[in-house]
Design a protein around this nucleic acid. Structure first.
Length: 572
RNA sequence: CGGGGUGUAGCGCAGCAUGGUCAGCGCGCCUGCUUUGGGAGCAGGAUGUCGGAGGUUCAAAUCCUCUCACCCCGACCA
């Protein structure tokens, strides 16, 4: 491709709409443009990146025995009502009515559609296992689109769905996908880690996420790693054994109410009473589907909303407003406590249950209770883990310690069980002629978000540094002066040779000055750069440079193709 | 949805408090000449319903009301 024949609108200045470096680079490099919040257009360079990555995904999915299909983006609402997700996924769903006033949605995922597809036609265990996938656009009306392609409202995803007759067969199918995922990301030049995750609105028994670890602020999720075993989980899911000691007294002391004027937060109360935060228990009030619930975590730890949501089984969980807190506890925010709290269930974290003579709010303005003990002074509805893991906690599986890193989710796998097959009636007959719901799994890879995620990792001050297998072109060919025939002729010759050798090359045939071309080359980030200038051409040579390296090599014009091949072999 | 912020040329921005040569700057774009190894120089040129609607006023980018869009923080994230 010749630059002047393509459409690569690079920009010199940072764009105000972009916060993340990867987003900024895609805009400045002429890869994408925004049409509306969370809606992006893919320009020629981005389109090529999408093709390259999709092809890797397609090849590996096919190799794993999955079958490519295409399902509609539109779906009648009824199907989603049958599985119950019409209400649980609710607001993220793009909804519309057709001209017959028939309610339709734009799919954000296709469990309902694919299950409808196979039910009634897959009737026998002999037809299983089966795995269907597609690479297709998805719509999710995100509450808050942001970060360019990372959280858009319209995006491209590879989604696969497995159907199995037995748990053993399902485990194999699931593992096949996991293996395929590692191969896919490896081929794309990306190191990912597989972590345990919450199942969220997907339902099902377990789930994993595939995360690209990054050092920039583009990390959307915190991942915990054990330093001894292979335990990894995201912050929503991470279990732990507490490591810092809970202060304990030998005896249960007498309950006391004390004035704590002006002290509502943990910091204020600990400062006022001159105690450590781990002697305190926070009593946090949330509204679970409109009903108040109390959650108690230790003063020095953070509540894990996902854990609380799972415990309460609520679809909507949000922090209670000051008015609701007043109504439930008869006190302003900051003075809630479990003693005498009758208005709502009280979920207590084990860390709190372990504190003897704890300090809690007294459900009265500017008052706290000392020496409160679970069992004696109040009853927990349930004692259950509600606390987010933090660095330094003990691994739940071994005697190692947890530490965290930031990551970006690029793929996920869900063990769906029979949630969808049961509600939609996708059943098969086993060898004995007995009917069972099909065991399902679903597997996603973000086709548009993954390349952007990669850029959070693969860039420098000058611009993008693509892993070669998802780069839009492999080589950028730069004749430094389009007025000089010798340079142009050489460029054309090399362009032809590389193209014939099957190497994607972009010829920068603009009549701009060298600086402009070099800067744009660094910005758009092709793996290899060939510079054709007077200096080395006098010796019959051109310059060869990898975007990821500083060294510039000189090679004879006749040997360019083999030199490029050699260099590419050494690059990620 | 709650909190904060921004809309002025293709992009990045100044101007707004204290209405009146405020329709401006940089980059980009067009023409010509020179230049050509890290975002060129000179000369000339084009481009704006100042997000939109209404209002106040002799006069509105500037003040008021309403509205739309976008960005950031939070809730959310299949």
């Amino acid at each position: 491709m010749r630059w002047t024949q393509s459409y690569i609108p690079t920009l010199r200045e940072d764009q105000s709409e972009a916060e993340l470096i990867s987003h900024q680079l895609l805009l400045r490099g002429g890869y994408i443009r925004k049409l509306a919040s969370g809606v992006y257009l893919y320009l020629p360079l981005m389109q090529r990146v999408i093709h390259k990555f999709s092809n890797i995904v397609r090849e590996e999915m096919n190799r794993a025995g999955a079958l490519e299909i295409t399902m509609s983006v539109l779906c009648p609402s009824e199907v989603w009502k049958e599985t119950g997700r019409y209400s649980t996924v609710g607001k993220e769903q793009m909804r519309m009515k057709d001209r017959h006033e028939h309610e339709m949605i734009l799919c954000g995922t296709h469990e309902e559609t694919v299950t409808s597809l196979i039910k009634g036609e897959v009737k026998s265990y002999r037809q299983l296992p089966l795995n269907l996938y597609q690479i297709q656009v998805k719509f999710r009306d995100e509450i808050r689109p942001r970060f360019g392609l990372m959280r858009g409202r319209e995006f491209i995803m590879k989604d696969a769905y497995s159907f199995d007759a037995t748990e053993e067969s399902f485990d194999e199918s699931y593992q096949k996908m996991v293996d395929a995922y590692f191969r896919i990301f490896k081929r794309a030049g990306l190191d990912v880690v597989k972590v345990e995750s919450d199942t969220g609105a997907m339902g099902g028994k377990a789930a994993h996420e595939f995360m690209l670890l990054v050092n920039t602020n583009g990390g959307e999720e915190i991942i915990f790693f054990c330093d001894k075993c292979d335990y990894t989980a995201n912050v929503e899911k991470a279990d732990f054994r507490p490591s810092n000691k809970v202060s304990t007294d030998a005896e249960l002391k007498e309950l006391k109410i004390v004035d704590t004027p002006g002290a509502a937060t943990i910091e204020e109360v600990t400062a006022f009473l001159k105690v450590d935060a781990n002697r305190l228990a926070k009593t946090l009030l949330y509204m679970a589907d409109g009903k108040p619930v109390a959650a108690m975590v230790r003063g020095d730890r953070e509540l894990n909303l996902t854990k609380l949501k799972n415990v309460t089984g609520a679809v909507e969980l949000e922090m209670a407003t000051p008015e609701q807190v007043m109504k439930s506890t008869s006190a302003p925010v900051g003075f809630a406590g479990p003693v005498g709290l009758k208005s709502c269930p009280i979920y207590v974290d084990p860390l709190v249950a372990g504190i003897k003579n704890m300090i809690v709010g007294a459900n009265a303005n500017e008052k706290h209770m000392l020496n409160v003990n679970i069992g004696r002074d109040f009853k927990a509805t349930e004692v259950i883990d509600l606390t987010s893991a933090q660095d330094g906690d003990h691994c739940p599986h071994c005697d190692g310690y947890l530490s965290s890193k930031q990551g970006i989710e690029v793929g996920n796998t869900f063990m769906l069980g029979t949630k969808y097959s049961e509600s939609l009636g996708a059943k098969f007959l086993d060898a004995e002629g007995k009917e069972h719901p099909i065991i399902m799994g679903s597997y996603g890879i973000g086709i548009t978000r993954t390349p952007q995620a990669a850029l959070e990792k693969y860039h420098d001050d000058m611009g993008i540094i693509w892993p070669k297998d998802i780069a839009p072109f492999l080589v950028e060919l730069i004749p430094l002066n389009m007025e000089k025939e010798s340079l142009v002729e050489t460029a054309e010759k090399i362009y032809k040779e590389l193209t014939e050798a099957g190497i994607d090359v972009l010829l920068d045939d603009r009549s701009d000055r060298a600086g402009v071309k070099f800067n744009d080359a660094d910005l758009i980030g092709l793996p290899v750069r060939i510079t054709i200038g007077d200096k080395s051409l006098k010796e019959g040579k051109v310059e060869l440079k990898a975007r990821s390296r500083d060294e510039v090599g000189k090679v004879p014009v006749e040997e360019v193709v083999s030199a490029v091949k050699e260099l590419l072999k050494k690059l990620n």
